[in-house]
């Protein structure tokens, strides 16, 4: 992934070296009606860190990514991207301001379970859209980068095809390329392989591994792919009932989990 050096992103949050905070969540609460999904959640992700979030379905782990991406509003608490607060909370950390939120948001990218590619645009047009329309990159430059990204995900010859003509795995790789196009410092991956046929999962995971090996991008992944987590993650977070149950290296969590619930969850996933 040549040229995706986040430090060139001048106005970006401080993510120059591993150890600085990329994402900080403090006392975040979120409920849908009576259903509490995030319960006083504290979570830190360092710049360049690769965190895999696991947990039973419906435990709210996807919501963590969605509130960071501002797809859901939080009820209270604070979220900081680098040094910039993302949410405007009653305590007045940030003024309610769409312009500011967009500025912070430009450092975050997200890949969805169901790809959400734009069906009326070709693979290349999907990738070029945000650089051209949001970041003011010239069409030529955006096209060149789009083709490079497609090359990276192994789909250069599909540049002119529309999503309807691609397989699920191909779509997801285009979607990953699309979100990389704006060089976000933090990438969120929401169960990106769950909707794929088993034989297509490998290609997508290979792309994710490549991004991870670049080591530049902070990655937060919600996934059930334990083998992948073991290989790639710096840290695995077990999430349940709106809280972090435990957190540690993949070895710690997978070989000697502290909690019975973690153990039974892993058992269920591995048996599957």
């Amino acid at each position: 992934m040549s040229g995706s050096d986040t430090s060139t992103n001048g106005s970006g949050p401080a993510v120059s070296d591993k150890g600085a905070a990329a994402v900080t969540m403090r006392g975040v609460n979120k409920a849908f009606g009576d259903n509490v999904v995030l319960d006083e959640l504290d979570m830190d992700v360092a710049a360049g860190e690769r965190v895999v979030i696991i947990g039973p379905s419906g435990s709210g782990k996807t919501t963590i990514l969605r509130v960071i991406m501002t797809l859901e509003r939080i009820d209270s608490g604070s979220i900081t991207i680098g040094d910039d607060p993302l949410y405007h909370m009653p305590d007045g950390t940030t003024p309610a301001n769409e312009k500011r939120i967009r500025e912070v948001r430009s450092h975050i990218g997200m890949v969805f379970q169901h790809f959400n590619l734009f069906p009326h645009m070709s693979a290349l047009e999907n990738i070029m859209l945000a650089p051209v329309k949001v970041h003011g990159v010239s069409r030529d430059e955006a096209e060149q980068r789009g083709l490079d990204l497609l090359e990276m995900v192994g789909l250069r010859q599909h540049a002119n095809h529309t999503p309807g003509q691609l397989s699920g795995g191909q779509k997801q790789r285009v979607a990953i390329a699309r979100s990389l196009a704006t060089r976000p410092a933090v990438m969120l991956f929401d169960e990106v392989t769950s909707a794929l046929d088993p034989e297509l999962v490998g290609d997508v995971l290979a792309v994710l591994k490549e991004i991870a090996e670049e080591g530049e991008t902070t990655m937060m992944l919600v996934t059930h792919e334990m083998g992948f987590a073991r290989e790639v993650a710096d840290r695995v977070v077990m999430f349940d009932h709106g809280k972090i149950l435990e957190s540690g290296t993949p070895q710690q969590i997978m070989q000697e989990p502290e909690h019975e619930r973690t153990r039974s969850f892993l058992q269920a996933v591995l048996d599957h």
Binding site: M69, L71, A130, V134, S179
Partner: peptide
């Protein structure tokens, strides 16, 4: 589909751009 709007937010399009292009 709602996912189309969510992808637009994730790509940081403005509301008007989302309406016009997506």
């Amino acid at each position: 589909p709602k996912g189309q709007s969510e992808a637009s937010v994730a790509l940081n399009l403005t509301n008007m751009q989302r309406l016009r292009f997506i």
